[in-house]
């Protein structure tokens, strides 16, 4: 451990005495990093989507005989909630740019709540579905895709809680420094877009 601590210290040291630009640039890299990461993450979903599409296209009958119709109403409402939460979280971003930390807390709280409702709705849907994970290929892909997406929603919730926790300290975020907020917002938009594709593929197509 010794070595790493030393290095961290001297980084700061040099950054302060030397070219100050080194430090300022950093937040930019992080947002860029998140963006690149989300591109990679979307390839994961892309792979699963393409698998689903292929399964579907080569099948003689889809969904396989005996699969009950999917209920559209509840998931539809659920989707609307998730999609609108993307607009809500953007409010937090606008707020922080005006140094309105209370606004950040509110909007993040609301978004987190909407996300939680989405998850509960999904749980309710799972509980009432008439097919199980192993019933047929459609059922398996349905659960894996929605489950995997749900996991991402859950991670998003955790991230929001973390931001809220940090925002207890009114100094933590400011109009200059709010990487956490922007990153979570971007992530949340990503989760939303994935859901839209997923909803179209699984429920509407």
């Amino acid at each position: 451990m010794q070595g790493s601590i030393d290095t961290a210290q001297s980084t700061i040291n040099i950054a302060q005495e030397g070219a100050a630009s080194h430090h300022e640039e950093h937040p930019d890299h992080r947002m860029f990093g998140i963006l690149v990461f989300l591109c990679a993450e979307s390839m994961l979903f892309m792979g699963l989507f393409i698998a689903y599409i292929t399964f579907r296209l080569v099948a003689v009958e889809w969904p396989p005989a005996g699969t009950p119709e999917l209920e559209i109403l509840l998931p539809g409402i659920n989707s609307l909630i998730l999609i609108s939460s993307s607009f809500v979280i953007h409010k937090a971003d606008t707020a922080v740019k005006k140094n309105d930390i209370a606004g950040v807390r509110t909007w993040f709280g609301v978004t987190a709540l909407m996300g939680a409702i989405f998850l509960l709705g999904q749980g309710y849907e799972y509980a009432n579905l008439e097919f199980g994970l192993r019933d047929n290929l459609f059922a398996s892909t349905f659960y894996v895709l929605t489950g995997f997406h749900g996991m991402h929603v859950f991670v998003g919730l955790l991230l929001m809680v973390a931001v809220l926790w940090r925002a207890r300290n009114p100094e933590h975020y400011s109009s200059e420094s709010h990487f956490g907020i922007e990153a979570v917002e971007l992530y949340w938009h990503f989760v939303d877009v994935i859901w839209i594709i997923l909803f179209i593929l699984l429920y509407l197509w």
């Binding site: 990679a40 390839m43 994961l44 892309m46 792979g47 698998a51």
Partner: peptide
């Protein structure tokens, strides 16, 4: 681009 697909 490609590794996440393997993960899938």
């Amino acid at each position: 681009i490609s590794t996440p697909v393997l993960a899938g």
